[in-house]
Amino acid sequence: METLIASNISIEIGEGELVALVGINGVGKSTLLRSLSGVQELLKGDIRIKGKPLRSLSSEKLSELISIVLTEQPISKNLSVFELIALGRQPYTNWIGTLTSKDLKYIQNALKLVDIENLQHKKCYELSDGQLQKVLIARAIAQDTPLVILDEPTTHLDIYHQAYILKLLKKLTVQTKKSILFATHEINLALQLCDRIILMEQNKVSIGTPKQLIEEDVFSKMFPSDLIFFDKISQSFKIKT
């Protein structure tokens, strides 16, 4: 059986923008992100990066334009933090993956931007979930692509580290001028930090600044209304009492 998930999506993301993708479970956020990043074949439609259609790009070329951060991948925990981040340079290294001084500079810069220089010699199995997430983000930064895509970067994290990661993403867009697109369920946090928000629903997709979307009152219809409601004053979801 085929299920129609969100259709007629038309989105543009500008340079240096932090954009959150929100929507209920199963609406197709991950599918959209995987299609955008080239991990999954396009179902339909057209994606352009810097004017070039995604379909026409080889995976090598694409790896210089888009980097991804995914959760729950079978990553070898026996890698050191430095090694993992260094793998982000694979698109630029020679046939056997030798790091040049330029590559080392990008890796050091990524370590510094994400503020994990003190972790670089640790093995990944020694890290907490929050630290590992930062390492994966640093890897994407080292890949040096104009667009970074993250699929639910704040799952499994406590609220402090959720805020920390989102703050970090915001800082990265400002400092590196990279565009960052991420799927999230933390709407309350996204509203406070993101430049724009994409809300995916079954039949329509709304995009706008947090302020615009709140004014359009799109969030109050996002979920069934029996348990929670969107409180416009505090700009967050509240439990019905």
Binding site: S37, G38, V39, S58, S59, E60, K61, L62, S63, E64, I66, S67, I68, L70, Q73, P74, I75, S76, L79, L84, L87, G88, Q90, P91, T93, W95, I96, G97, Q143
Partner: peptide, 23 residues
């Protein structure tokens, strides 16, 4: 030996490997 670089990339899992340009 020709696969060494891709084998290292595969340590991140296939989805990451693909995003790093591995066929």
């Amino acid at each position: 030996v020709t696969c060494i670089k891709n084998l290292n990339t595969l340590l991140l899992g296939e989805q990451y490997a693909k995003s790093l340009g591995v066929s």
